[in-house]
Amino acid sequence: SSRTRFTDYQLRVLQDFFDANAYPKDDEFEQLSNLLNLPTRVIVVWFQNARQKARK
């Protein structure tokens, strides 16, 4: 499967949200999905990866 290429804007929004809340609710994932024009699944995985990185 091909990797999603995030724009700088998408990454900034995701990172800002993550800094405020590492565990979004379903409706928040949906809002981010609509805002960033990305599939919810891609955003869910991004947050999983970000939490892994933050733990190191």
Score class of each variant (00 low, 15 high):
residue 1 S to A: 11
residue 1 S to G: 15
residue 2 S to K: 07
residue 2 S to E: 15
residue 2 S to N: 12
residue 3 R to Y: 15
residue 3 R to S: 15
residue 4 T to H: 10
residue 4 T to E: 05
residue 5 R to T: 15
residue 5 R to F: 15
residue 5 R to C: 15
residue 5 R to I: 15
residue 5 R to N: 15
residue 7 T to M: 04
residue 7 T to R: 03
residue 8 D to T: 08
residue 9 Y to M: 12
residue 9 Y to R: 07
residue 10 Q to D: 03
residue 10 Q to C: 01
residue 10 Q to S: 04
residue 10 Q to E: 03
residue 11 L to H: 07
residue 11 L to P: 00
residue 12 R to W: 03
residue 12 R to I: 05
residue 12 R to Q: 13
residue 12 R to T: 09
residue 12 R to C: 03
residue 13 V to D: 02
residue 13 V to P: 01
residue 14 L to A: 02
residue 14 L to V: 04
residue 14 L to Q: 03
residue 14 L to C: 03
residue 15 Q to G: 12
residue 15 Q to S: 07
residue 15 Q to N: 10
residue 15 Q to D: 08
residue 16 D to N: 07
residue 16 D to W: 02
residue 16 D to Y: 01
residue 17 F to N: 09
residue 17 F to S: 12
residue 17 F to Y: 13
residue 17 F to M: 11
residue 17 F to Q: 04
residue 18 F to N: 02
residue 18 F to L: 07
residue 19 D to Q: 06
residue 19 D to I: 02
residue 20 A to F: 03
residue 20 A to V: 06
residue 20 A to G: 09
residue 20 A to C: 04
residue 21 N to M: 04
residue 21 N to A: 04
residue 22 A to G: 13
residue 22 A to K: 08
residue 22 A to M: 14
residue 23 Y to S: 11
residue 24 P to I: 06
residue 24 P to V: 02
residue 24 P to L: 03
residue 24 P to M: 01
residue 25 K to W: 03
residue 26 D to N: 08
residue 26 D to H: 02
residue 26 D to S: 07
residue 26 D to R: 08
residue 26 D to V: 11
residue 27 D to I: 08
residue 27 D to F: 06
residue 28 E to Y: 01
residue 28 E to C: 03
residue 29 F to K: 04
residue 30 E to T: 02
residue 31 Q to N: 15
residue 31 Q to I: 14
residue 32 L to E: 00
residue 32 L to P: 00
residue 33 S to A: 09
residue 33 S to P: 03
residue 34 N to H: 04
residue 34 N to G: 11
residue 35 L to S: 12
residue 35 L to Q: 05
residue 36 L to I: 04
residue 37 N to P: 01
residue 37 N to G: 11
residue 37 N to E: 11
residue 38 L to W: 01
residue 39 P to C: 02
residue 39 P to I: 01
residue 39 P to V: 00
residue 40 T to I: 08
residue 40 T to H: 09
residue 41 R to T: 14
residue 42 V to I: 12
residue 43 I to P: 02
residue 43 I to S: 01
residue 43 I to D: 01
residue 44 V to H: 03
residue 44 V to E: 11
residue 46 W to H: 03
residue 46 W to G: 01
residue 46 W to T: 03
residue 46 W to P: 00
residue 47 F to M: 11
residue 47 F to W: 04
residue 47 F to V: 03
residue 48 Q to C: 07
residue 48 Q to N: 06
residue 48 Q to D: 14
residue 49 N to Q: 07
residue 50 A to M: 13
residue 51 R to L: 09
residue 52 Q to S: 12
residue 52 Q to R: 09
residue 52 Q to P: 06
residue 53 K to M: 12
residue 53 K to C: 11
residue 53 K to E: 14
residue 55 R to I: 10
residue 55 R to L: 12
residue 55 R to V: 11
residue 56 K to F: 10
